[in-house]
Design a protein around this nucleic acid. Structure first.
Lengths: 129, 129
DNA sequence: TCCTTAAACAACCAACTGGTTGAATACAAA
DNA sequence: TTTGTATTCAACCAGTTGGTTGTTTAAGGA
């Protein structure tokens, strides 16, 4: 599923070094050595980071003599933004409906507490990944 | 900085169970017990997940008798989308400039290999987090 | 051929993660 | 006050992660 893919992408970007690598690749391809240079870590460590980014589909590598130039694959970003937008929009929609809810609460004399309220709204949840 | 915040947000969403919790909270607030119910894990485990989401700023909790209703904080999504869009746009811009590059390569008789190319483009990278 | 460079692989280690169970806390209701 | 319910805290465990160093592999240049 794209379920697992999404986990790998978010997980890959959870590390500051890896986000920095993505930032640098966004302006142009680079080799492992070039990417490792600015950090206080070994080339092997960066190689591991790149493997994570590659498995997440964020980076691809080509062959070129001994070098393995890394290239940023921007399409994967769509996967994230789609997921984010889905729930952001849903939450905002719910937020904008708040005035309606408040009006209903005013109309209703009984002090309907938030617990019941959340339970009701929870019932109309759908399975989502 | 928001550097660390971004790490926490991405890290929080790297777990499928936590993404599912976010999805469910997007349609309405819920208590820990309600959130735990559909999963084959203990309430304590879900409580831990909620702590992670809370520390990432994705979820806030109020008090209400013994219950701790959880609420989705959608603003944090902006942080992510801003980061993503920045590098996506940069990468796409570079991609759209590819025809210019190809034209230059045609004009240039010497077979400029990709290594030099990536090295050049890498020089105009800027520090970014 | 031999030497150098670029990168990956392997084994190891400390720290973190996601889960568990059991005990403590906070509040409501009897 | 006692009991029940909702949640958190604490200790523990197995698996993962991000780093290390040392050893291959792959390719170019002397």
């Amino acid at each position: 599923m794209s379920e697992d893919r999404l986990s790998r992408v978010f997980s890959a970007l959870a590390d500051p070094t890896r986000r920095d690598i993505v930032a640098r690749l966004s302006v142009g391809d680079a080799t492992v050595g070039q990417l490792a240079e600015p950090y206080g870590v070994s080339v092997q460590a960066v190689s591991k980071h790149l493997k994570v980014l590659e498995e997440a589909g964020l980076v691809s590598r080509s062959r070129e003599a001994q070098r393995r130039p890394c290239h940023l694959e921007a399409e994967v970003f769509d996967l994230m933004t789609k997921w984010i937008e889905r729930y952001r929009l849903r939450a905002e929609e719910r937020f904008s409906r708040l005035d309606t809810v408040l009006a209903e609460l005013n109309a209703d004399e009984s002090t309907t507490d938030q617990a019941q309220q959340s339970e009701q709204s929870h019932q109309r949840r759908g399975a989502a990944s």
